[in-house]
Computed example of a mutant assay.
Amino acid sequence: MSTARTVLVIGGGAAGNAVTVLLRRAGVTVDLIEAKDDWNATAGSGITLQGNALRVLRELGVWDRVRESGFGFGSVGITAPDGTVLHIARDLRTGGDDLPATVGMRRPQLQRILMDAVRAGGASVRLGTTAEIVDQDADGVSVRFSDGSEGRYDLVVAADGLSSATRAAVGITDKPEPTGMAIWRVAAPRPAGVDRTDLAYGGPAYIAGYCPTSDTTLYAYVVEAHRDRASIPRETYAEEMRRLASAYGGHWPEITAHITDPAQVNYTWFDQLLVEGSWHRGRVVLVGDAAHCCPPTLAQGAAMSLEDALVLAQLLTASDTWDDALFQAYYERRVARVRPVVEASVQIGRWQLDGVRDADLPGLMGRTMAMLRELP
């Protein structure tokens, strides 16, 4: 790429931060805006990063910090509700043999690492700021910011998440749909002996699991049929999660004892989304959750978003011509990989909701994860 370019990235989550770092490295002028004043620096409890996500984080130059901040492991345990270990499966190293199969870490810590990388790359960052698409033509996009200022860019990258206002503003009508499940999450101290993810199926929840996030911490979660959020008072969140978690044995009693602060408990529905046809309108391009999302049954949400950023940045920096053909090539390359992940993630949940006992869960997971070992 020999022509000077300017890009506006809307949204400072994983996808937005990653594409900003990669474009700045190639010499592109990037402005990143984020609606939240704190840049999402405190949001969330924990995150599971599989090898294909780690591969992108290494490309971003942050792998050493991720490794030091998180907890790497290579297996998953399947337990009965009482904690009895029924099976231990080795995780496939989807990022290659030189990376762990999985790293668990505190989500705010990952965000801070990515924030530092954005700052180090020299991007302009404006927090507490949103943008409206004023108009666009074959050469660029004009935007108006929430502070009244205006700008003109060669490209706008919409990384503003599941409820993307930018997606709707450019006429893409796809919206996320609930799958029927919901998840309670909380961060807690890590009991001695927890050195991998364990998943219990059955009991009062569809899934009860935990993932170590450091030498001293983990995040725990229970999955149930979704309920009307308005019917669950925020001050009862700890009580609700503790009620479900208290039915499980093994390490769960020690974890459950720490579920006391409702402000630390997060409750969200599982959603699914896959924008079809293309992920762009003119010179506005979607990445991450703005283009697709899936239940965390395969722990691939962040990985798919990070891969989007990598592929888009590769295509943009390799070409002097930013046009419909390039943006469509981005979509076609990504949708072939994202679609099976979304479909498999939704199918796993559907089998549980429908009570299917003879589902080929290992086969579906094995085929999907084997596909993800290939480069995006």
Rank of each mutant, 00 (worst) to 15 (best):
A299H: 00
V30I: 06
T297Q: 01
M115N: 14
V194F: 05
R119V: 09
L375A: 13
I47Q: 00
R242F: 12
P191C: 08
Q328N: 14
W269D: 06
A220V: 12
A329G: 13
A168S: 15
M1T: 07
P253W: 10
D261W: 00
S164L: 05
A192C: 03
L86M: 13
M369Y: 15
A370F: 08
V275A: 03
P212C: 09
A309R: 08
G363A: 10
D289N: 14
T197I: 14
A35N: 04
P295G: 00
G349C: 06
S75P: 03
I10P: 02
D261E: 01
S231H: 02
T42H: 14
A257K: 01
L361V: 15
R190G: 10
A238W: 13
D198A: 13
P189F: 04
N40E: 15
Y331W: 09
D198V: 07
T3A: 14
V311A: 03
S149H: 11
I78W: 10
D261I: 00
D91W: 13
G355A: 12
L127G: 03
G180Y: 13
N52S: 03
L60D: 07
T29P: 00
E34C: 07
P189G: 04
T179I: 12
E150L: 03
V186P: 05
R58N: 11
A131H: 01
V134R: 12
G288E: 01
A41D: 10
W279H: 00
G104I: 05
K36M: 12
G77T: 13
A101L: 08
G46D: 14
Q111T: 11
A225D: 11
A344G: 08
D323I: 04
H226W: 12
I10A: 10
M241A: 09
A257D: 13
D215C: 03
T94G: 00
R373Y: 06
V7H: 15
L312M: 06
A344V: 11
I88D: 05
L298N: 02
R167L: 02
H292W: 00
E59S: 14
T42G: 07
A309C: 05
V66D: 03
T256K: 05
A329C: 12
V265D: 01
R112W: 08
I255P: 05
E307H: 00
R242S: 15
Q300G: 01
L49T: 10
V287R: 01
L32I: 14
D135S: 15
E235C: 03
W63H: 10
D360N: 12
R196F: 04
E177W: 05
G161N: 09
A89Q: 13
G148A: 03
Q300S: 07
L361E: 06
D289T: 05
G301I: 00
E332I: 01
H87F: 12
S164I: 14
L49S: 11
V275R: 12
T6N: 14
E374N: 06
L49A: 08
W63A: 08
L326Y: 13
P340M: 07
L49Q: 15
G44N: 04
D198P: 01
